[in-house]
Lab assay of single mutants.
Amino acid sequence: AITFRFEGQEKAKKFYEKLMRQNLEATIHIHGDEVHVTVH
């Protein structure tokens, strides 16, 4: 698994949606202002 870190939720959401379109499995974790997107 690879984890990407984002400042702010907007960028993270766009990235997450892009992964979903590519049929990749990903989970999102929100830590205050920092958002972690883990790709499995």
Rank of each mutant, 00 (worst) to 15 (best):
E25T: 14
D33C: 11
E10S: 06
E17W: 06
L24A: 05
F6D: 02
I30R: 07
K14H: 08
V37Y: 01
K11T: 12
A26P: 04
E10T: 05
M20H: 05
T3S: 05
T3H: 06
F15E: 01
R21S: 13
G8D: 15
K18R: 10
G8Y: 09
H36N: 04
Q22A: 12
A1N: 11
A26H: 04
I30M: 10
Y16R: 02
R21G: 08
T3Y: 05
V35L: 03
E17S: 04
F6Q: 01
L19R: 00
H31K: 08
I2G: 03
D33Q: 09
K18P: 00
V35M: 04
I30K: 06
M20D: 02
K13E: 12
K14V: 11
M20G: 03
L19F: 03
E25M: 14
M20R: 10
I30S: 06
N23T: 04
H29F: 11
D33F: 11
R21H: 08
T38E: 05
E34L: 09
I28N: 00
D33H: 11
G32A: 07
M20I: 14
T38L: 10
R21C: 06
T27D: 07
M20L: 14
F4W: 09
I2H: 06
D33V: 09
T38K: 07
K14D: 10
K14R: 11
E25Q: 14
K13S: 06
H36P: 00
K14N: 09
H36F: 15
V35H: 03
K11Q: 15
T3N: 03
G8L: 11
R21N: 08
L24V: 13
M20T: 07
V35G: 02
Q22S: 08
F6G: 02
Q9D: 08
I28V: 07
E10H: 06
A26E: 01
H29R: 09
H31L: 10
V39L: 13
Q22H: 10
K13F: 14
Q22N: 09
F15G: 00
D33I: 09
T3L: 08
H36I: 14
A1R: 12
D33Y: 08
E7W: 12
K18D: 12
I30A: 07
N23K: 09
A1Y: 14
E10F: 05
F15L: 03
E7P: 09
K11W: 08
T3F: 05
F6A: 01
H29G: 05
L24R: 08
R5W: 11
K11H: 10
K13R: 13
K18V: 09
F15T: 01
E34D: 05
L24N: 03
N23D: 07
F15V: 02
V35A: 04
H31R: 09
F6L: 02
A26S: 04
G8S: 15
H36C: 07
A12M: 03
K13L: 15
V35R: 00
V37P: 00
Y16H: 04
K11M: 14
H29S: 14
H29M: 11
F4Q: 02
E25S: 14
K14C: 03
T27H: 08
Q22F: 12
H36S: 09
A26Q: 01
G8A: 12
Q9N: 10
I30P: 04
V39Y: 11
E17Q: 08
I28P: 00
R21Y: 07
K18H: 13
I2P: 03
Y16S: 02
G32Y: 05
A26C: 04
K18C: 13
F6I: 03
G32V: 04
F4P: 01
D33G: 09
Q9S: 10
E10M: 06
R5V: 15
F4I: 08
A12N: 01
E17P: 00
L24T: 05
A26G: 03
A26M: 07
K14F: 08
A12S: 02
A12T: 01
I30C: 03
H29K: 09
E7K: 14
V39G: 02
T3M: 07
R5P: 03
A1K: 13
E34F: 12
F4R: 02
K14Q: 13
D33S: 12
Q9A: 13
H31N: 11
H31P: 00
Q22L: 15
Y16K: 03
K18Q: 13
L24G: 03
H36Y: 15
V37H: 00
A12H: 02
R21L: 12
H40Q: 09
T27A: 05
I28S: 01
K18S: 13
E17G: 03
G8V: 11
H29I: 11
E34W: 13
Q9I: 15
I28R: 00
V39E: 02
F15R: 00
V35W: 15
G8K: 11
V35P: 01
A1E: 11
T38F: 08
T27C: 08
K13M: 15
I30N: 06
I2M: 09
K14L: 13
V35N: 01
T27N: 05
V37K: 00
R21F: 08
I28Q: 01
H40R: 10
G8N: 15
Y16W: 10
R5Y: 13
A12C: 05
R21W: 08
K14A: 14
E7L: 13
M20W: 05
I2T: 07
E34A: 07
A12P: 00
F15W: 04
I2A: 05
K13H: 10
Q22E: 10
L19S: 02
E7V: 12
L19A: 04
L19Q: 02
T27G: 03
M20Q: 09
T27S: 10
L24H: 05
Q9P: 14
I28L: 10
V35S: 03
G8H: 14
K11I: 11
K13N: 10
